[in-house]
Simulated scan of single mutants.
Amino acid sequence: MEYFHWYQYVLVFLIFVWSGFVRSGLGFGGAALSLPFLLLVNNQPLVYLPIIAIQLLFFSSLTMISSHRRTRQQLANSQNSNSTIDWRYLKYAIAIMIVPKLVGVFGLVVLPNDLMSAVIFVIVGFYACSYLFGFSFSNNSRWGGIVLLILGGYMSGTSLIGAPLIIAVVANQVSREQLRDTLFAIWFILVSIKLSAFLYFNIDLQLWHQLWLLPAAGIGHYLGLKVHEYLLKSSSRRFYRVMGGVLLFVSLTGFFRNLWEWV
């Protein structure tokens, strides 16, 4: 980013504000909803991915620490002390995703990225419609969920955009109150593996750029927390409609971006 024009720096700053906003507001989408726009500013994925990964690690850590403190305080006050993280389902999901995640990270299987992305975005689009219109394609399909978690783990290993596939499954298995923090715990584990790979392959982590982009994501994170509180207080139907709208936006953006590259 050393050779960017001033307006490119402004655009990157605003995109990272947006990234932090959607990440804390919904618990997912920080990478999937920002990376396509960042690549439109400048097509350097290996510049942006380490920055996004470190921010995911930082904010997921804050969320889990806050959740732990809140649970301990509730225990001390003899209140309902249910954790905001579904640890049982977290272990189940990670057990399924860990191998495809490693496969994606180390590139042991090379699949056509454009074809894989197009298929995934179409699947995500169907799931988005299920949330928007209140019906489900495979809520009772255990194997369908496993397949999507495997694909999500693989895509997370290759480019950190596996979140739409993972959320499509996790949202059907975890309560609304535990969904966001459970997702943050999943991101913490998956991103830790990704960052380890960056270090192994000597990829520049762009730490100097975190000095001005981490505050940008922090602004968005704060605003997203307010939105998340509003969504939790609103009706469950409205919550899932918002989530479905975001998923549909992600899938359409990704699909038409791939279509544009093919043409």
Rank of each mutant, 00 (worst) to 15 (best):
M1W: 05
E2Y: 10
F4L: 14
H5S: 13
W6C: 03
Y7L: 04
Y7I: 06
Y9F: 13
L11K: 01
F13D: 06
L14P: 00
W18D: 00
V22N: 04
R23D: 01
G25D: 05
G25M: 05
G27Y: 08
G29T: 09
G29C: 00
L35T: 06
L35S: 00
P36G: 03
F37Q: 03
L40T: 09
Q44R: 08
L49T: 08
L49K: 06
L49W: 07
I52K: 03
I52L: 15
A53M: 07
Q55F: 10
L56Q: 12
L56E: 13
L57A: 15
L62H: 13
T63I: 08
S66M: 05
S66G: 14
S66V: 03
H68F: 14
S78G: 02
I85H: 08
R88D: 14
R88Q: 13
Y89W: 10
K91G: 15
Y92Q: 10
A93G: 10
I96V: 13
M97K: 07
M97C: 10
L102V: 11
G104Q: 01
V105Q: 12
V110H: 14
P112T: 11
M116E: 02
A118D: 01
A118L: 11
V122S: 05
F126N: 05
C129L: 14
Y131D: 04
L132K: 00
F135C: 07
S136F: 03
S138V: 01
R142V: 15
W143K: 02
G145M: 06
G145S: 07
L148T: 00
I150K: 11
S156V: 01
T158N: 01
T158Y: 04
I161E: 00
A163K: 02
I166Y: 12
V170D: 03
N172Q: 10
N172W: 01
N172M: 05
V174I: 09
V174A: 02
S175K: 09
R176I: 03
E177T: 09
D181Y: 01
T182G: 08
L183T: 03
L183G: 00
F188E: 05
I189N: 02
K194D: 02
S196V: 06
L199H: 01
I203K: 10
L205R: 00
Q206A: 15
H209E: 15
Q210R: 04
A216L: 11
A217H: 06
G224K: 09
L232G: 02
L232D: 05
L232C: 01
R238H: 15
F239P: 13
V242F: 15
G245N: 05
V246I: 15
L247H: 11
L247V: 09
V250K: 00
T253R: 12
T253N: 15
G254R: 12
F255E: 04
F255M: 11
N258H: 12
W262R: 08
W262Y: 14
